[in-house]
Design a protein around this nucleic acid. Sequence first.
DNA 1: GAGAAGTGACCGAGCGCTCAGTCAGTAAAG
DNA 2: CTTTACTGACTGAGCGCTCGGTCACTTCTC
Lengths: 204, 204
Amino acid sequence: MEITISSQVKDPERIRQRRAEIVRAAVGLFAEKGFHRTTTREIAQASGLSTGALYEYVASKEDVLFLVCRHIHHTILQQLKASLAVEGPAVQRLRQSIQAFIGVMDSMQDEVLLIYQESKSLPSPFLHEVLRQESEITQVFDNLLHEGIRDGSLRTSPKNVPLLAHDIVVAGQMWAFRRWALNTMDFADFAASQTERLMEACGS
Amino acid sequence: MEITISSQVKDPERIRQRRAEIVRAAVGLFAEKGFHRTTTREIAQASGLSTGALYEYVASKEDVLFLVCRHIHHTILQQLKASLAVEGPAVQRLRQSIQAFIGVMDSMQDEVLLIYQESKSLPSPFLHEVLRQESEITQVFDNLLHEGIRDGSLRTSPKNVPLLAHDIVVAGQMWAFRRWALNTMDFADFAASQTERLMEACGS
DNA sequence: GAGAAGTGACCGAGCGCTCAGTCAGTAAAG
DNA sequence: CTTTACTGACTGAGCGCTCGGTCACTTCTC
């Protein structure tokens, strides 16, 4: 069910490396100018390829956007899941994950904004895959919340869990998509305040 | 300091009517296909004008986007401020406004999404004006919170107020920009849950 | 009141240009 | 020699915006 982007090039390792370069270049360009104002020539040049060579690794400009979005979500999810590898009651691991997540949002502001603003330009199957990945992030918190209710460390009803999970994700992401208004605020303050507020909302 | 869009047409009332048509048409098109995939021909046709006539009322495609964004914010602010015209302690008016705001977000899902996804395409002075309008919305809640602290109906510190105001706005807007994930949920449930959670966070 | 002159909103073909994607040819590797 | 990766000039569709022209309506002239 994993979507694969076809390539003219045979060597899988070469594909992996070149596409990593393409994604790295495209993230910068898309974040700066947006998807539509970025040309395929610019992407090619910034990844050290010619126009033609770029099209050996992707079939369309939309493919590039999809690779970018997938990479971003993959990175976020990887870092988020790493933060789960601690012992203790669910409430403690929840706090840990919220802090970790907000930290990731801080380090990936451009990327988060990019997904909010440009994912609409993805062809439908790509968009669905990207939204599925986004759900995976929410699901991490969903699971933690249910665990906390089960082990008694969180006092809230299971029927609140789905929305609470979304609230956590959005509370973290807003540091990225509302930085134009929040940049008067210190990041450490933001992270601490949001974490406390969310933990309380979760019944900690 | 209000930004004015110049027009070749002399009659101000005619400008008002035609631009209202242009905005109405453009909101639909931008929401459906996005700013960049919508052509000026489509905007003209959907507003009952020819390509040339459209350019009697705006100087560029970006002008249309700005008129659209300004109109959306104006509508939101108007409805939000209408909800303030009640008596009682601040805590009660806060609850009223939060509920009203979430209701507006529900009725303007496409429009809210549009601003999130397309405002990036605005030329800098237009973007600043749009962000200023967005701040005005946050400011409504900011003021209410301060009032509530002053009259003793809210138990929270003034230093939390700015972030709380943003949390309220974002908690409402997420109904629009995450509907792909939230549409399994009943709107009434969403509105009730978010209102309770936010009121508690505000120290009610 | 009839005709002439002027006004301003509107029309839409088309200009100038951009840009995603192609393909004939080159280079390198084995 | 064959295969694979790469090159970059080229194509053609599409788009924002323009501009010469039209026409309904108003104002002026006698």
